[in-house]
Amino acid sequence: MQMIEMILSPLLALIIGIFFLGLSRKIMARIQWRYGPPITQPVIDVIRLFSQKSVSHGKLFNLGIIFSLAGSLVLVLFLPLAQICPLSGSGGMLVILYMMLLAPLGIALSGGESANPNTSIGISRKFILALGYEVPLLLILLALMTHYKTISIVHIVSIQQNTGWAFVSLPLLLSGIAYVLILPAILGIRPFEVVQASQEISSGPMAEYGGPFLALATIQHALSLFIGIALFVNLFLGGAGNLLIFFLKMLVVFVLVLFVNAALPRLRIEQAVKYLWRWPTLLAFIGMIIVLIVRR
């Protein structure tokens, strides 16, 4: 049974992630009064990329992107998708936090090898942005873990299914709002699209990827979209009893985030970090103090 789950959950994540990519292009097009590409466009792109011949800058260039994709795929195994969670008992929330590092680190190592300044600038922005949103995110997650007195994400989900969503429970309300404020930064979309700013730094870390490398990077991007939203749904919207409801919750969150993406321009990296360290951090900090008071 666990083996089936092991195969099923990354596969589902992949399908949902690719679907979200296509959906985002379609919805963005409709918002901008365009017809937009077919919803299967990312699949076509990936097929095209896999059949192209690309260049490699060295062993690490290849290994880094594999490492990054593997990190995202393993991370999916730790996330509960409705009731499916193949690696629930292997480290909990803390491992998830660390696994979230692997994907950017892999891309960073791989891109660093390509000796392209655009790539290096993109990576430096990525790490600064990550430091920016990790400050509120860690406060939020610690508030959750302190409130529910567990470090296992499966326990967090199951407690919420008994007692109601964390987002609407009073002690965690501010943390939830802070999470919503930083969600675009976690997903790397506008107004925080500083890393892959294609107009400024030629799509940053992706600048040297072509062919199969870019295909893997696209798949990784799809997975990271999935992970960012699934984490939010699990932590604050109470997970779900079955896959359909889980998917619907993710869809609602994703579409709302897309509206933000369509409406706002891109911030500069300093503005982004200043914003992230001001309002979301303040809310998360107050949320943490409320949790501590309630706990006593």
């Binding site: 097009a29 365009r34 017809y35 590409p37 992706m206 040297e208």
Partner: peptide
């Protein structure tokens, strides 16, 4: 490529670098 003619419906999309 923008709203008037929308090349993306043909799958034509401008990308940043020649590698892609």
């Amino acid at each position: 490529i923008t709203a008037r003619w929308d090349a993306e419906r043909f799958g034509v999309l401008p990308v940043a670098t020649p590698r892609q």
